[in-house]
Amino acid sequence: MKTFLAVEDDELIRHLYERSFRVAGHEIEVANDGEEALDKLSKMEVKPAVILLDIMMPKMNGFDVLQAIKADEKLKNIPVIMLTNLGSEEDRQKGLALGALDYLVKSDYNPGQVVEKVIELTEKGAPPAAA
């Protein structure tokens, strides 16, 4: 069974992730902020199949977390999907430029679609090397 990691500071959204993935029959780990996410990632024996990453978070924002992941030899091959409510094109481009596989605006999708996207990615097989 595959593991997923969602990095999200908003409790409401965190609940949504946990619930959606559970309903779809998957397990998901959550981190409250960027620092916690990096801490968890370093401790995980089996690395998650996909990381869902919010942008606006206290302590360390999503872009910085993404950069840290891409700079880490052990983590850089894990696909990262930016999942945020920051809808500007500039932020989207920035996320993709930093190596995110996709950039999704939360309010544009329903939970089923998000889960589907993530599962689809993992089933595609080997993720692209740090693009």
Binding site: L12, R19, G87, S107, N110, P111
Partner: peptide
């Protein structure tokens, strides 16, 4: 403002959807 508004709205949408 758009971010602030989107977050609770997302929660409402996803929860009602589920």
């Amino acid at each position: 403002a758009s971010h602030e508004l989107r977050t609770p709205l997302t929660a409402i949408r996803w929860n009602t959807d589920m």
